[in-house]
C-alpha cells in the first residue's frame, strides 16, 4: 500500500512550525528509516501516517484513503504504529489478551484474532509468556509485547518509533529479525531512530530530516556518504562507514560485509 504525501505543512498550536512542505512517496514493501535530531520533525511526520496528527495544509494518502476522512482507529487497519514506551499502552492481565486487543478492535472474528495472535507470539518469541501478566515481564519483554500487539493488527504498513532505545545487543538483533520477516511478507516498514548503525544495517532507504524539511532522501549508501549534510542535523555516519572513510576506501560501506569486502579490495591493491 502506497503512502503519498503532498506539500504537507504542520503547525503546532502556538504557531510552532514543525513541518514545512513535505513531498514524499513510499511504495509498497519499502524499508525506510527516518533520521534527524530531536525537533527535526521526524516524529511529527510519522504521526501523520496513521492520523494522530492531521496536516495544517496539504494532503497525506494511505492507499486510497485521505487520512482526514478516517479516524486513527480506522487507519490502524492500514498503519500499525509501535510506540516507544510499552508502559504507556499495556493494560490486559495476560499477554494473549493484550495481543488480541487490536484485532478485536478492528472487528476481526475469534478465529482470525486467534490466528493473528498466535503469529505475533511466534514472531516475537513470547511463546513461554502467553498467560503471563505483561507487568510481570522485564522491560525488554514488555517491549516485545507492545511490538506483538501491533504485528497482530496485520496492517500493510508498520511504523516503529525508536525500536532500539534501551534494548541490549540481543534484543536489537531480535527486532532486526522481526523487521526482516515482516519485510519478506511484503509489508512496508518505517522507523524513526537515532540509532544510525541499526538503520544502515537493516533498512534500504534513509530520509534525513532537519528543521521540518527533508534534507536527504535516498538509498542507505547514498545518504550515509553525505557526511557534511548529515552533520547539519547532528547525525554521525555509521561507525564502519566512518572507519572506511578514515582508511581511504573508494566506496561507502554500511555494514560488516561491505566493510570487509572493501577492505579485502584495498588489501589486494597494495
Amino acid at each position: 500500500m502506497k503512502i503519498e504525501i503532498n506539500n504537507l505543512h504542520f503547525t503546532y498550536p502556538g504557531e510552532i512550525i514543525a513541518l514545512s512542505g513535505i513531498n514524499l512517496s513510499i511504495e509498497s514493501g519499502e524499508k525506510v528509516a527516518i533520521v534527524g535530531q530531536n525537533g527535526s520533525g521526524k516524529t511529527t511526520l510519522v504521526k501523520h501516517f496513521n492520523g494522530l496528527l492531521l496536516p495544517t495544509n496539504g494532503t497525506i494518502r494511505i492507499g486510497d484513503w485521505d487520512t482526514k476522512d478516517h479516524s486513527v482507529a480506522e487507519l490502524a487497519s492500514r498503519v500499525g504504529y509501535v510506540f516507544q514506551n510499552p508502559d504507556e499502552q499495556l493494560f490486559n492481565s495476560d499477554v494473549k489478551s493484550e495481543l488480541g486487543f487490536g484485532p478485536r478492535n478492528l472487528g476481526y472474528d475469534d478465529d482470525r484474532t486467534e490466528e493473528l495472535v498466535e503469529d505475533a507470539i511466534e514472531l516475537t518469541g513470547l511463546d513461554n509468556y502467553r498467560d503471563t501478566n505483561p507487568y510481570d515481564l522485564s522491560p525488554t519483554w514488555r517491549k516485545m509485547v507492545a511490538l506483538g500487539s501491533i504485528i497482530a493488527l496485520d496492517s500493510p504498513i508498520v511504523v516503529f518509533d525508536e525500536p532500539t532505545t534501551g534494548q541490549d545487543a540481543q534484543s536489537v538483533e531480535v527486532i532486526a529479525r522481526i523487521a526482516d520477516e515482516l519485510h519478506s511478507r511484503g509489508k512496508t516498514l518505517i522507523t524513526i531512530s537515532h540509532d544510525i548503525d541499526f538503520c544502515a544495517e537493516n533498512f534500504e532507504r534513509i530520509i534525513a530530516m532537519s528543521e521540518g524539511e527533508i534534507l536527504l532522501d535516498g538509498s542507505v549508501l547514498e545518504v550515509i556518504a553525505q557526511e557534511e549534510s548529515l552533520a547539519t542535523t547532528f547525525v554521525d555516519p555509521p561507525q564502519l562507514t566512518r572507519l572506511g572513510k578514515e582508511l581511504g576506501f573508494d566506496q561507502t560501506v554500511n555494514d560488516q560485509a561491505s566493510f570487509l569486502g572493501a577492505y579485502r579490495l584495498s588489501h589486494e591493491q597494495n
Binding site: 479516524s71 486513527v72 499502552q89 484485532p103 478492535n105 478492528l106 501491533i150 493488527l153
Partner: peptide, 18 residues
C-alpha cells in the same frame, strides 16, 4: 501529557475513543 500519549497509543491499536 501522559494521558494524551496513552490515548494515542490505544487509538493506534484500533480503539475508538470518540
Amino acid at each position: 501529557v501522559k494521558a494524551g500519549t496513552i490515548i494515542d497509543a490505544q487509538q493506534s491499536r484500533g480503539l475508538e475513543t470518540t
